[in-house]
C-alpha cells in the first residue's frame, strides 16, 4: 500500500509529472524560440509562471457560474492525472493495468476536452462561449481519427490493455513500421487535442482572445496550464507506448528511453506549430473527415488483415 502511494504521489506520479510538465513546457518554448531566431526563456520560466499565477488574485466574473468556475480547473487536472493509473510511464508496466484501460485513458482525455468547453460555457462571455463551441466542434473532428489510430496497435496486439499492447509490440518491433501512418495521424490529432497551432482554433488569441480561458485568472489559469502540460505528456507517453515500443523494464534504461521518446514526439509537435498558420474550423473538420479518417480506416483494415493472415 505504501509503495503504491509513493508511486502515485512521487514517481511516476504527481511530483514527477509536475516537474516533467514544467520541463516539457520549457523545452517546447525554448525550441519554438530557437526556431524563430530568438533566445527563449530560461529553464525555470514555467515554474516561475506557475508560482506567480498561484499567488495572484482569482477573480470570479459576475456573469460566470461561481461553482463551476471554482471546480473546473481542479476537474481538468484530476482527469489528466488519473490517466497515470493505467499508463506505463518510464517502465513497461502501468500501476494498475487491466483489460480495457486504453479506452479509459481515451475517455479521460476526452473528458478533459469537455471541461474546456464547460469552462467556456460557464464563463458566460461572448469570447468564451464561441471558444467553447469551437472546442466541441474541434473535438468531434479529431476524436474519431485518434481512436482509429489507437485501434491499430490494439488490433495487432489483440488486447485492450496498454501494458500488454506495449509488451507485444516490443516483442515484434517489425509491426511498428506497419503502423507508422497511424502514428502520424495520432500526432496530428494530438496536436488538435492540445489546441496548439495550427489547431488552436478554440483558443485563437487574435480572434477570440484565448477562448474558453479568457476569463480565467490566477489559480485557475495556473491549474489549466499545468493540466494542458500534463495532458501533453500523457498524450506523447501514450503514443510512445503504442507506436514506439514503450519503455524498458530496467528502471534507469526505462527512464532514459522515456525521456528520449517523449522529447522526440514533443519536438515534432513544436516543429508543427512553428511552421504552420492556424486553420479555420471548417478546414479542420474537412481535413479530419476527408483525409485523416479514410487513411485511418485503411490502416485499421491493414492491421485486421495482417492480424488475420500473418500473425495467427
Amino acid at each position: 500500500m505504501t509503495a503504491e502511494l509513493v508511486q502515485i504521489l512521487l514517481f511516476p506520479g504527481f511530483v514527477f509529472l509536475f516537474a516533467y510538465a514544467m520541463f516539457v513546457e520549457w523545452f517546447d518554448r525554448k525550441a519554438y524560440a530557437l526556431m524563430q531566431n530568438r533566445v527563449g526563456p530560461p529553464w525555470f520560466q514555467p515554474f516561475a509562471d506557475f508560482i506567480k499565477l498561484m499567488a495572484k488574485e482569482y477573480i470570479i466574473p459576475r456573469r460566470a457560474n461561481p461553482l463551476f468556475f471554482l471546480l473546473l480547473p481542479t476537474g481538468i487536472l484530476a482527469f489528466v492525472l488519473t490517466t497515470i493509473v493505467c499508463l506505463p510511464i518510464a517502465s513497461n508496466r502501468a500501476l494498475y493495468p487491466f483489460e480495457g484501460d486504453i479506452l479509459v485513458v481515451a475517455f479521460l482525455l476526452t473528458a478533459a476536452s469537455i471541461v474546456i468547453f464547460l469552462m467556456g460555457w460557464f464563463s458566460n462571455n461572448p469570447f468564451t462561449i464561441v471558444g467553447g463551441t469551437r472546442a466541441i466542434s474541434q473535438m468531434i473532428s479529431y476524436e474519431v481519427p485518434l481512436l482509429f489510430a489507437i485501434l491499430t496497435p490494439a488490433i495487432l496486439a489483440g488486447s485492450w490493455s496498454i501494458t500488454e499492447i506495449t509488451a507485444y509490440l516490443r516483442a515484434n518491433p517489425i509491426l511498428l513500421i506497419i503502423q507508422l501512418p497511424a502514428l502520424i495521424i495520432a500526432l496530428i490529432a494530438l496536436q488538435a487535442k492540445l489546441e496548439r497551432v495550427p489547431f488552436d482554433i478554440p483558443e485563437a488569441e487574435t480572434e477570440i482572445v484565448g477562448g474558453p480561458l479568457a476569463e480565467l485568472s490566477g489559480r485557475g489559469l495556473a491549474l489549466f496550464h499545468l493540466a494542458t502540460d500534463i495532458e501533453m505528456i500523457v498524450g506523447v507517453t501514450l503514443l510512445a507506448n503504442l507506436f514506439l515500443g514503450g519503455f524498458s523494464a530496467n528502471p534507469a534504461l526505462g527512464l532514459i528511453e522515456f525521456f528520449v521518446k517523449t522529447l522526440i514526439l514533443v519536438f515534432i509537435l513544436t516543429a508543427m506549430r512553428t511552421v504552420m498558420a492556424r486553420v479555420r474550423i471548417e478546414q479542420l473538420v474537412l481535413f479530419c473527415w476527408h483525409k485523416l479518417v479514410p487513411i485511418a480506416l485503411v490502416q485499421v483494415l491493414i492491421a485486421v488483415l495482417i492480424k488475420g493472415w500473418w500473425l495467427t
Partner: peptide, 22 residues
C-alpha cells in the same frame, strides 16, 4: 518581442486579455 530584443528571455509574455496580465 521580436528576435533582436526578445523579451521572452526575461519571462515577459504578451497576453491578450487583462485577466492573464500582471
Amino acid at each position: 518581442l521580436t528576435p533582436r530584443f526578445d523579451v521572452e528571455r526575461f519571462g515577459i509574455l504578451l497576453q491578450g486579455t487583462p485577466r492573464h496580465a500582471d
